[in-house]
Simulated assay, not measured.
Amino acid sequence: MKITVLCVGKIKEKYFTLGIDEYAKRLSRYCKLEIIEVPDEKTPDNASENEELQIKAKEGDKLLRYIKDNAFVIALAIEGKMLTSEELSEKMEQLGINGDSNVVFVIGGSLGLDKRILDRADYKLSFSKMTFPHQMMRMVLLEQVYRGFRIMKGEPYHK
């Protein structure tokens, strides 16, 4: 299975980079992992709703360039479905069984994802009703994907 994490923005904090690198290394036993970053757009203070939509559209244009037609797209969205770690593992296993071997997780920038990305998504996943920095979500997502593979393989994991 190929897992792509397609995200807006760069990781600036070293502690996130270290965590992401660690989970990327661990995941190499289970899948081919690719992390693609697209540049975020600057959001002016007190941006209007229209300006925010334009920013999300520009970020959406950049993201869409990397989404292939045959990809199973999972958008991280606050309005998505919340799953347990076991349910995410089952979802990933089912994708493999169904032949969906190219899975793309999409993480938006500080304003979220453009409507076109949400419309293209085959599945919307929420980790919480709370908002998290996209840098942190990248690390949390990789940890949960790693945990999902461990569960799938019947290997021990920390509960």
Rank of each mutant, 00 (worst) to 15 (best):
I78F: 02
Y30L: 09
M152P: 00
V106Y: 08
I74F: 08
V73D: 04
E93S: 15
Y15Q: 00
G9S: 07
E37G: 04
K58S: 05
I97P: 00
E155D: 15
G154I: 05
C31F: 05
K56R: 12
E87P: 02
K124R: 15
K81W: 11
E51F: 00
K58R: 15
L76F: 01
P156D: 07
D119V: 10
T4F: 01
Q94D: 15
A75Q: 04
K2F: 12
D69C: 03
Q54K: 05
N98L: 14
Y23A: 05
E37A: 03
K68V: 05
N46G: 05
K159A: 03
A24V: 10
E87N: 09
K81I: 14
R138K: 11
D45M: 01
S126A: 14
A77Q: 06
K115A: 10
V73E: 12
Y23F: 15
S101N: 15
T4W: 07
S85E: 11
G154R: 05
Y23T: 01
K124C: 11
M152V: 01
L33R: 10
L64D: 01
R150M: 13
Y123P: 11
G99D: 14
G109E: 05
T131K: 13
I55Y: 04
E13R: 03
R26W: 09
E87C: 07
I67E: 00
K91Y: 14
R29T: 10
G148C: 08
E90D: 12
M152Q: 09
E59M: 02
R116A: 11
E49G: 09
R120Y: 10
L125T: 10
I117V: 14
F16D: 03
T43W: 00
F16P: 01
R29S: 12
E86C: 04
G80S: 13
V103I: 15
V73H: 03
R65C: 07
M92A: 12
E59W: 06
K25R: 14
A75W: 09
K62S: 13
D40T: 10
G80I: 10
M1S: 14
R29W: 05
N98H: 15
R116D: 11
S110L: 11
C7F: 02
Q144W: 04
C7N: 03
D61C: 01
S28R: 12
L95G: 01
Y157F: 13
K62W: 02
A121E: 07
R65P: 03
N70E: 15
E59A: 04
E49P: 00
L33M: 13
G112L: 07
F149S: 06
L111E: 01
L6A: 10
Y157S: 08
E37C: 04
L111Y: 08
K56N: 01
I20D: 09
F105Q: 03
M82V: 14
F149L: 06
I20M: 12
K159E: 11
K32Q: 15
R138W: 08
C7E: 00
K129G: 15
E86H: 12
I20C: 00
D119Q: 14
A75N: 05
L95V: 00
A71R: 07
E41P: 02
H134Q: 10
S128V: 08
Y146A: 06
E52V: 09
P156G: 03
E13W: 00
V8E: 13
D61Y: 01
L6N: 08
R138H: 13
T131F: 04
Y66Q: 06
